[in-house]
Structure formats: structure tokens, C-alpha cells
């Protein structure tokens, strides 16, 4: 078993003539909380998409939980997403016609089987025990993001990817979300957070900084 949850070797991603990622070599240990930072256009979202198997790379190697990603076909990448990772986005992507509880159970549905009790438990863990039967439109932004966190956690996936998770939240809700991340980190979850906010980087073990598709700095906190 690899000690790394994520590892890239000589990772290159090109969109036509544009090189979005250029020889990126990073490694994230299991249980580590890492921030990937950089300005807009630095390649952090492209990197996140490749690491979450939503996109494929052009050259190099990507190891996800010890498995080389380029060997995975469409089904393999889908299974990896369903079984190994929890996803969190800046925009609160929830199915509008499902309640908070049903949105969480949707992740279970694509993972294995739906278990209402487990879904309720994880919603209670993020402080939404009283909002389970509400539709997304009846929840605040912070509450919606917490439903997304519950959905990302419900399958006990070992790696949590968060792309600008607090980008649309006010300060109070940002703190709630970061507190949840801290608890998860304490429970040995691997968390990879993409952000351009330097303040968030302080909550992590390490900051990987990208510029023009290259890793320019790695700072241990």
C-alpha cells in the first residue's frame, strides 16, 4: 500500500497549444490536509479535475490511492469518484428537487446502497439535524455547503477534495466549514483544498503554490 493518497510525476495537461499544467510533481500523504493555491489561471482547478478523475492528463503519471489513473477507463474513473473521493465545490451543487437528506443519500446511491440512518447521522454531524427535510432553496448558503460536505462524507471516502469551498460563504459560515475540515483532519481524512485565499492556507498542513501551471513553492505549516 502506498503511503500517498495522491501522487503526480511529471504531470502535463495541454489544451491544444496551451499548457495548463507543466511537469507537476506533488505527493499528498494519507491523512494530510493540503491547500493548493495560486492565482486565477494558475492551473489549480485543472489539477483538481485530473486528481478527481473528472478530466484526464496529457503526459506523466497520476497515482490515486496507489492506482495509476491513466490505466482507468471511464468506468474505473467513475468508480474511483464514487468510492474513494468526496467532492466539494465553490457553488453549492445540490439537486434542487431533493431534500437535504435525499441529496446526501444520492451519493450513497451511486456508491452502493442508500442508508437513511447513516445519511441522517452525517447531517447531524455537520449541524443540520433539524434541516434534513428541507429543499436546497429553503436553506442558506452555509447550510447548503454543509449539506454538500455531508454528501462528500457519507460514504466514508478517504480523500476529500474541496474547490474553493468557502468562496461563496460569509465569515461565520466559512468558520463553520473550516471547523468541520479540522475535525475531519483530526480523524485522519485526507483533504485537498483548492483556494486562492491565503488565510485558508493557514488551516492546512502544507500549501502547494502553482503559477502558470507549475509548482513554484511548497510551504509546510
Amino acid at each position: 500500500m502506498s503511503e500517498f493518497a495522491i501522487e503526480t510525476r511529471g504531470l502535463v495537461k495541454r489544451f491544444g497549444q496551451v499548457c495548463a499544467l507543466d511537469n507537476v510533481n506533488i505527493a499528498v500523504r494519507k491523512g494530510e490536509f493540503v491547500a493548493i493555491m495560486g492565482a486565477s489561471g494558475s492551473g489549480k482547478t485543472t489539477l483538481m479535475n485530473i486528481l478527481t478523475c473528472l478530466d484526464t492528463h496529457t503526459e506523466g503519471q497520476v497515482f490515486l490511492d496507489g492506482q495509476e489513473a491513466s490505466l482507468l477507463d471511464e468506468d474505473g474513473r467513475r468508480n474511483f469518484r464514487a468510492e474513494k473521493i468526496g467532492l466539494l465545490f465553490q457553488q453549492f451543487h445540490l439537486i434542487p428537487y431533493l431534500t437535504a437528506l435525499q441529496n446526501v443519500m444520492l451519493a450513497q446511491h451511486y456508491h452502493s446502497v442508500t442508508e437513511e440512518d447513516a445519511a441522517k447521522k452525517v447531517l447531524e454531524d455537520v449541524g443540520l439535524g433539524h434541516r434534513m427535510d428541507h429543499l436546497p432553496s429553503q436553506l442558506s448558503g452555509g447550510e447548503q455547503q454543509r449539506v454538500c460536505i455531508a454528501r462528500a462524507l457519507v460514504n466514508d471516502c478517504p480523500i476529500l477534495f474541496a474547490d474553493e469551498p468557502t468562496g461563496n460563504l460569509d465569515e461565520a459560515n466559512e468558520k463553520i466549514v473550516l471547523d468541520i475540515f479540522q475535525k475531519l483532519h483530526a480523524n485522519k481524512h485526507t483533504i485537498i483544498m483548492v483556494t486562492h485565499n491565503p488565510d485558508l492556507g493557514r488551516y492546512t498542513d502544507r500549501v502547494i503554490r502553482l503559477q502558470h501551471g507549475k509548482v513554484i513553492e511548497e510551504v509546510q505549516n
Binding site: 478527481t52 473528472l54 471511464e74 468506468d75 467513475r78 468508480n79 469518484r81 464514487a82 468510492e83 467532492l87 451543487h93 445540490l94 439537486i95 434542487p96 444520492l106 451519493a107 451511486y110 456508491h111 454528501r151
Partner: peptide, 14 residues
């Protein structure tokens, strides 16, 4: 589209 994209991201077969 976002709904379907989310389902695929969560692991739904196309």
C-alpha cells in the same frame, strides 16, 4: 446540465 454533471461527478454511470 448542472444536475447531470453533479450526478456524473458523484459516480453516476453516463
Amino acid at each position: 446540465r448542472r444536475e447531470f454533471a453533479l450526478q456524473i461527478a458523484l459516480g453516476a454511470p453516463r
